[in-house]
Design a protein around this nucleic acid. Sequence first.
DNA 1: CTGGATGCAAACGCTTTGCAAATAG
DNA 2: CTATTTGCAAAGCGTTTGCATCCAG
Lengths: 142, 142
Amino acid sequence: MQSPSPAADASPTLVLSARQQRLLAELGRSDDELSGQDLHARLRHGPDAMGLATVYRNLRHLQQRGLVRSRHLPSGEALFAPTERDRHHLTCVDCGFTLPLADCPVHGIKLPSAQLGGFQPLFHTLEFFGLCAPCRQRQQAP
Amino acid sequence: MQSPSPAADASPTLVLSARQQRLLAELGRSDDELSGQDLHARLRHGPDAMGLATVYRNLRHLQQRGLVRSRHLPSGEALFAPTERDRHHLTCVDCGFTLPLADCPVHGIKLPSAQLGGFQPLFHTLEFFGLCAPCRQRQQAP
DNA sequence: CTGGATGCAAACGCTTTGCAAATAG
DNA sequence: CTATTTGCAAAGCGTTTGCATCCAG
């Protein structure tokens, strides 16, 4: 029912600043998710350098518009990626090694509107955790 | 105060220290997830007080054994809950308001072993993000 | 007696915020 | 000119770590 029309962007509020567009472009350019620090490192130089605070501030704006998604590493560091990219991971709870998953198990899932409570869903995060082979062995025979 | 006698259920690889059992019990006692700080607040007093570092250290051990799961708030704070509890949330990216979901869309999901890469899955985190009604209005008409 | 667990407090790293200057409209 | 946005650096915050001590086995 909520089939999105192919219309590019009829979003009510699509006012992206130049900085925000640049962040979004940079995220799109990268195959992997990028942390705030990563983005700052990539955008600090050039003709229109961007400060760290600005990176974070605009990242938040993008996220609030549903254009960017973030996931937190066990370390607490946040990684950002375009919302359109629906990729998830398998992470070792011991050493932190990460394996990207091929597809998203909840892709296109639709939450019962009864559970939405007026929310407008923008994106989701799904991460699997476990023990990688080396760490599993190390745990069983220290 | 407990029965230190040779427990009947001598489960293999289930060597939990008293501290770890206490953390697990405290998590089980709570309806909601608890942060490291929360747990410390609850376990700092009493006959067998537990320091903050110990809370975090044992929380990690429990997590590495798959008995406890953690999710990170957008703020970076980590919330812990027993792995058995399979509850997820819908969080507002703007104000942070959180709504628990009734059921887990990926409950009992089985990842293709081809994708596991030797991993032993322990638990997953699934969180939905969006805009709650009040924030959506505020965003459209500031 | 030996290895692991614990407390305390300092250290850490990422993120946020205060404030004045720069910029947009 | 008023309203925003930005930079810089300081502050904030939960979490982690070093180290001496304590406990179990």
